[in-house]
Amino acid sequence: MLEVEGVSKSFGGLRAVADVTMRVEEGSITALIGPNGAGKTTLFATISGFLRPDAGRVRFLGRDIAGLPPERICRLGLARTFQIVQPFAGLSVRENIAVGAHLHRPGRAQALAHAELIGRQIGMGRMLDQPAGALTIAGRKRLELARALATDPKLLLLDEVMAGLNPTEIEEIVTVVRRIRLAGVTILLIEHVMQAVVSLAETTWVLSDGVLIARGSPAEIAADPKVVEAYLGRGAAARLAGREGGAARA
């Protein structure tokens, strides 16, 4: 469904994303993980049209979308959320979601009705008339998800929708995301919350310093020494293995 081929993006002398090639299968939940500053959000911005890649191609449904503006990409069926939440603070939750719903619904009444439907699905039924600016961080993360979902996407890019949430809230969002996939939406998510990655994703890609270093199921990834080193520093995998070995001998 989504194919990223040799995409690079630099800011000045910093190569935020270097020659990344990855793919997302239709109907899957795919996770993109990596330490802070690995370039995950930059890659998302490049896919969704907010940044133009310096090199490489992004194919969505067989069509090259690199360099298209975000609003065009969204109309093709690829919606994203923002890691740093971007609510329309002065509008109510319902009106926020309706902006997304308007993409394929010109009428105000239909858009508002669809917004309400989506809002209830995402568990915001009781917040529909609250101003978005008054929501808690968990509420704002949900709103990001609801708005993007209201555009009827085929592929949804979720940028850390669980960061800053407590375990109960994470459990709720995990259920919501699973339900969205069941409804036929393919999902690519950036996430630091490993509990969520493990329970949701079939395939996980690991990005470190702008380069893809591993790919596999969450269990395979966790056992990959390259991944452990990316998070904990060079030599960490060997030291960990050594300690486990030592513990086994004792």
């Binding site: 975000p70 609003e71 969204c74 959320t81 971007q86 603070a89 509008l91």
Partner: peptide, 26 residues
């Protein structure tokens, strides 16, 4: 106030990036 155009206009006022991400041609 009760049209798609108005809803998009207000969305642009509130947050241009978010509006673009939702398919609004700012």
């Amino acid at each position: 106030e009760h049209s798609r155009f108005g809803a998009r206009l207000v969305a642009v006022r509130e947050n241009e990036d978010a509006a673009r991400a939702l398919g609004v041609d700012v």
